[in-house]
Nucleic acid binder design. Structure first.
Lengths: 105, 105
DNA sequence: TATTTATAAAACCATTTGGTTTCATGTCAA
DNA sequence: TTGACATGAAACCAAATGGTTTTATAAATA
């Protein structure tokens, strides 16, 4: 298994989450993405680089442009990490409930 | 609605995710948590503070100790954010599949 | 071919982050 | 009541982060 830290890091920034939202709609070049922000292109390119490190985005060269595509599959390990605690919690709550009911009997 | 940024921030750090894992087991004081890390107590206290800001942990004073409890409910908005893209993606994929099938007919 | 365009890459900067040490405060226990 | 203990709070520091500007390079276009 690969490290999920780069993915957690990638989604921790609001700008990058916004970029993810845009790429869900359609593939975009660096310039496309940058046009939606009050920020220079190199800054956006860095964000895209961090998204790529997190496995959330793939890039393909198309002439002088670089087309960025979202890959939401990378979110799966994060989702599972969350599910683990949700499930754990529910189990504990129901166990507690059972214990209380027994106590009342 | 409240801001989810503090929650994303809270879970972005590996030490804090480890703390979440510990607190899933049982409630703990600052000292309890700190004993599991090669790190000073003030450092751990800071992490717990950030987890509290993210709504993931609640604190109750018990004598001179501060007992920290996990509240996994705070992870729900993050889970939903992820679900949104997973769902979006699945929809798009099935639409693409349909289009291809039509094309082949 | 000369020029513009899209991007990468590097150097740089201010702020945030994750840690430390030091000191203050309230509670437990001898 | 006198320490010892658990914690909070503040000052401080190095490294990471999110941004900038500048420079270089390859591809499209006049």
């Amino acid at each position: 298994m690969q490290d999920i830290q780069p993915t957690f890091r990638a989604i921790a920034d609001p700008t990058r989450r916004a970029i993810i939202g845009m790429l869900a709609d359609k593939e975009m070049t660096v310039g496309d993405v940058a046009s939606h922000f009050d920020m220079t292109r190199p800054a956006v390119a860095k964000h895209l680089g961090i998204l790529r490190e997190g496995g959330l985005v793939t890039v393909r060269a198309e002439g002088r442009e670089r087309v960025h595509t979202l890959d939401p599959h990378a979110l799966r390990p994060v989702e599972q990490w969350i599910e683990h605690f949700s499930h754990f919690w529910d189990t504990k709550l129901s166990a507690l409930k059972t214990a209380i009911e027994k106590d009342e009997s």
